[in-house]
Computed example of a mutant assay.
Amino acid sequence: MAKAVKAVKAVKAAKKKEKPIILITNDDGVTAPGIRNLIEAVKDLGHIVVVAPDKAQSGMGHAITIGHPLRLSAVNLFEGIEAYQCTGTPVDCVKLAVDKILHRKPDLCLSGINHGANHSINVIYSGTMSAAMEAAIESIPSAGFSLLDYSIEADFTGARKYVRIITELMLKKKLDKHSLLNVNIPAVPESLIKGMKICRQAYAKYEESFLERMDPHSRKYYWLTGEFQNFDKGRDTDVWALENNYVSVVPVQFDLTNYVLKSKLEKSWKQNQ
């Protein structure tokens, strides 16, 4: 009996010593500086596996590839890190990682660090956040990270710091398996970042227009442009936090049900049932 108890304790101790498996992906492509900085921030916190698109996939949202085959190949881009590039979308990367590389669900999925904002309405279009959302749908706690700087030479110092803080908290606090965080970092020197704010998504969007131009063959083409407009004056939003040099952390869900409207319709439409 004593031997059996010791054996059970030994197994539990071994499991505690096992590093968590952390899946890393993005939408800017496997060679983007952002994903390299994400890996650097967390590489000692678990067993890191990278599966990312072989080219930029920004704005792809939750697209999946169904019309043509996907290809997956190992790459040697990050020293000591198992990494693969995929011809598909960010969501494809997560699906393939779970089914064909890990053969199990990782303990955590981190997406990013995106070059550019994914606050407010951007979360709908973001390939970065859709990859993280796909993981959350698959019962994998996840987070998408974005730095408000589109430059290829962006300074990721502050972003790395807060990526690590948030990842350590997610691992320590054992969040719900469907947990999903949208994290945005202001593009200011690390010394000017005031800390983190848990926020709600601001009501803000792009006022869009299409520039009409002519190609060399005298055929019309259109180029999407727009100006970001914040219609939300609340001080508890992601936009406010970022404008005031805070890292914004918005808990996101994939259940899109409008429960307030559902309740109203159940009452007001009852007579028509």
Rank of each mutant, 00 (worst) to 15 (best):
G195M: 01
G195S: 01
K197V: 12
I198Q: 07
I198K: 07
I198Y: 05
C199Y: 05
C199K: 09
C199W: 06
R200L: 03
Q201D: 06
Q201P: 06
Q201L: 09
A202V: 04
Y203I: 13
Y203C: 12
Y203L: 14
A204W: 04
K205Q: 13
Y206L: 13
Y206V: 14
E208H: 07
E208D: 14
S209N: 10
S209A: 15
S209F: 13
S209G: 11
F210A: 04
F210M: 12
L211F: 10
L211D: 09
L211S: 09
L211Y: 06
E212K: 15
R213N: 09
R213M: 13
M214L: 12
M214S: 09
M214T: 11
D215S: 02
D215W: 04
D215K: 08
P216M: 01
P216K: 00
H217G: 10
H217D: 12
H217S: 14
S218R: 08
S218I: 07
S218H: 08
R219A: 07
K220A: 13
K220I: 12
K220F: 11
Y222N: 11
Y222D: 00
W223R: 10
W223Y: 09
L224C: 07
L224I: 11
T225N: 11
T225Q: 12
T225F: 04
G226W: 06
